[in-house]
Measured scan of single mutants.
Amino acid sequence: AEKTGIVNVSSSLNVREGASTSSKVIGSLSGNTKVTIVGEEGAFYKIEYKGSHSYVAKEYIKDIKDE
């Protein structure tokens, strides 16, 4: 089941290729951006990003809701 969340950062949140802080950064999301969460892996959520799937750190996503 998909969930949505809100990016909870003051500046921007790195979007990564994989579920690791050493993964390549492929983009960023600004605070209060709504994201669609399709899964989770460790400390990361797998999200829909620009037509494919990428990862963001869970600690920076708030207001998780089931869609």
Rank of each mutant, 00 (worst) to 15 (best):
A1R: 10
S28R: 11
K3T: 08
L13R: 02
K24Y: 05
S12D: 09
K65V: 13
S10D: 12
E17D: 14
E48W: 14
A19G: 05
K58D: 00
K50H: 10
T36W: 13
V15I: 07
H53S: 06
G42N: 07
S28Q: 15
K58G: 02
G27M: 02
S12T: 14
E48G: 03
S30Q: 14
E48M: 14
A43V: 08
S28E: 11
A43M: 11
Y49M: 02
V15M: 06
N8A: 14
V9Q: 07
A1C: 15
G51F: 06
G42F: 05
E59D: 09
Y55V: 00
V38I: 12
S11Q: 11
K34V: 14
E67I: 14
G51T: 05
D66S: 12
F44S: 03
V56Q: 00
V15S: 01
S20M: 06
A57T: 06
S52D: 08
K50L: 12
R16T: 12
S12W: 13
I47S: 00
D66T: 13
K24N: 08
S22H: 11
K24A: 11
S10L: 13
V7P: 03
Y55T: 01
E59H: 08
S30V: 12
V35P: 01
A43S: 11
N14P: 15
H53N: 06
S52M: 13
S22D: 14
E2G: 15
S11V: 12
K34R: 12
G5I: 05
Y60I: 03
T21G: 09
I37Y: 01
V25N: 03
V9D: 06
D63Y: 12
N8T: 13
K3Q: 07
T21K: 11
F44C: 03
A57M: 12
T33W: 05
A43G: 13
S11Y: 10
E48P: 04
A1T: 12
T4F: 14
S22F: 09
V25D: 02
G31F: 11
I37A: 00
G18C: 13
N14G: 09
Y60P: 02
V56I: 08
V35M: 02
G5A: 06
Y60E: 07
G39Y: 03
G31L: 09
G39A: 08
I64Q: 06
E40C: 08
I6N: 04
N14T: 12
G51Q: 06
A57F: 10
Y60A: 09
K62N: 10
R16A: 04
G27P: 01
E59M: 11
S11C: 15
V7L: 04
V25A: 05
V9Y: 07
K58Q: 05
S11I: 12
N14M: 13
V35W: 02
E59R: 10
D63W: 11
K3S: 07
I61N: 01
G5F: 06
A19K: 03
G18K: 13
I47P: 01
S52Q: 13
S54H: 09
V35Q: 00
S22C: 13
E59K: 12
K46V: 12
E59I: 12
F44P: 00
F44L: 02
V38A: 04
I64G: 07
G18Y: 14
K24P: 13
E48S: 09
E41G: 03
N32G: 15
S11N: 12
D63F: 15
L29T: 02
V38S: 04
Y60C: 15
Y49V: 02
L29W: 01
K50D: 09
V15W: 01
K58R: 07
V56W: 00
K24M: 09
S20P: 01
L29V: 08
K24W: 04
K46T: 05
I61Q: 01
I37T: 01
S23Y: 05
G51V: 02
E40F: 05
R16S: 06
G31Y: 13
K34L: 12
S30Y: 09
S54Q: 07
V56C: 04
I37E: 00
I61L: 07
S28D: 06
S52F: 10
K58L: 03
H53K: 05
V15R: 01
V7A: 05
V56D: 00
T36Y: 13
E59T: 07
V38E: 03
A19H: 05
T21F: 15
A57R: 10
E17V: 07
E2I: 15
V25K: 05
N14H: 13
A57L: 15
I37V: 05
R16E: 01
S23L: 03
V15K: 00
G27Y: 03
S30P: 15
D63A: 11
E2S: 15
T4N: 07
S12E: 12
E67R: 04
I6H: 05
K62D: 14
E48H: 09
Y45K: 01
E41P: 00
A19C: 06
K34D: 03
Y60W: 09
